[in-house]
């Protein structure tokens, strides 16, 4: 397997508070990497550092390197806007824009310069289909996206990310606001997507991590405690702290 991304001694600070301590973590191409750990352990901070979304918050500082295809994304010459086109993100709460379903998905392509209606229609169709949403919304493409259910909204948001044709998709607890049926659909979708994309998912839910991911990293108090294949982490953790956390969460 090859590494799509890799962090080297990555530390993140919010003003005076250090949220991450020198994390080294590889992210395998065309695989799902899950990040687990208790609230406030730094897993979301780590995720947001992978496409420089942490810079949106004032007073954030980063040390170390994050490599994407071998190049450091924190190099001052790198434009974060172009980076985020390659490394897309799905947020915890579904956040469709207050516009039609079509316009939501077409938003990314449009800002990146695609104007032709037929091209946009094709992209919207393809993206919605890839997000397993096309059949449910094909008759109401021009209705407001806010009328969709939570699960549909979250898949719409994924379609919106896919429309930009990213290489990596970051998901920050994407199922935490969804019901069990929608969650199952979302997990199926993640399975399909990994054939074409590299996926990193933050989750609170151990079963979910075990179900969807190939590799897992366990975070505690801003440190990466253990990283291994998901099977190894859940069946034979090397670290006592990992085992305590996993068994505690399962029990």
């Amino acid at each position: 397997m090859e590494n799509k991304m890799e962090t080297r001694k990555l530390s993140v600070y919010y003003k005076n508070f250090q949220a991450l301590y020198s994390v080294d973590l590889p992210i395998q191409k065309n695989a799902v990497t899950a990040l687990i750990g208790p609230s406030g352990c730094g897993k979301s901070t780590f995720l947001r550092a992978l496409n420089r979304m942490n810079e949106v918050i004032e007073g954030t500082r980063v040390e170390g390197e994050v490599l994407l295809d071998g190049k450091n994304i924190y190099d001052p010459r790198v434009d974060p806007v172009a980076l985020r086109k390659k490394v897309g993100m799905v947020f915890q709460k579904p956040n469709p824009f207050p516009m039609s379903i079509f316009d939501n998905v077409a938003y990314g392509p449009r800002i990146h310069g695609i104007k032709k209606k037929t091209d946009l229609e094709q992209i919207v169709h393809k993206s919605l289909a890839a997000a397993a949403l096309w059949d449910e919304v094909k008759d109401r493409l021009y209705k407001s996206a806010l009328g969709l259910s939570g699960g549909q909204q979250q898949r719409l948001v994924i379609a919106r990310v896919l429309a930009v044709e990213p290489e990596v998709i970051l998901m920050d607890e994407p199922a935490s606001a969804l019901d069990p049926i929608s969650t199952a659909k979302l997990e199926d979708l993640i399975h399909q997507l990994k054939q074409n994309y590299t996926i990193v998912i933050v989750t609170h839910n151990m079963q979910q991590a075990a179900r969807v991911s190939d590799y897992t990293g366990f975070f505690l108090n801003g440190e990466l405690i253990e990283y291994n294949t998901t099977t190894a982490i859940f069946t034979a953790p090397r670290e006592k702290r990992t085992e305590d956390y996993i068994t505690g969460r399962f029990g």
Binding site: K71, R77, V78, D79, V81, A82, L83, K86
Partner: peptide, 8 residues
């Protein structure tokens, strides 16, 4: 990925 005209 470099900053260009858009950045200006």
């Amino acid at each position: 990925m470099d900053k260009g005209l858009a950045g200006i």
